[in-house]
Design a protein around this nucleic acid. Structure first.
Length: 105
DNA sequence: CGAGTGACCGCAA
DNA sequence: ATTGCGGCCACTC
């Protein structure tokens, strides 16, 4: 696990890579865990430019809504990827998101 | 180097 | 319930 001289960005990478299948994390949650509670916005930015090998589709906003503009396959692609992991989505919003939230140890 | 933009969140009116 | 605005880091031009 990378946690050392890691920048905010690197910490986000670390957490995202740990999200298990069928679970999700919110931008705000990642911001808090990475040491910048008000930087949820930046997490989105990092997600946009981040490495494709990380499961960015498991990162969603607090309302359970999907990203407004998803880099890979658009919002429909995003929805499909989540549904593949047995996550129920209604109107581009995850239903009862709280039960999918992943809390890293 | 400086300025602008952005996959968001929470509080105030 | 909706609307507006500040905060924050990474990246581009």
């Amino acid at each position: 696990m990378i946690e050392h001289d890691s920048t905010f960005r690197d910490k986000v990478y670390g957490f995202v890579s740990q999200i298990p299948e069928g679970r999700v994390m919110t931008y705000g949650q990642l911001a808090v865990l990475s040491g910048h509670p008000r930087a949820a916005r930046i997490v989105g930015q990092i997600a946009h430019f981040g490495p494709i090998d990380l499961p960015w589709h498991r990162v969603v906003n607090k309302k359970g809504g999907l990203a407004r503009t998803f880099s890979f396959g658009g919002i429909e692609g995003h929805r499909k990827l989540l549904q593949q992991e047995n996550i129920v989505i209604k109107d581009n919003t995850i239903e009862d998101i709280d039960r999918y939230i992943w809390q890293p140890k």
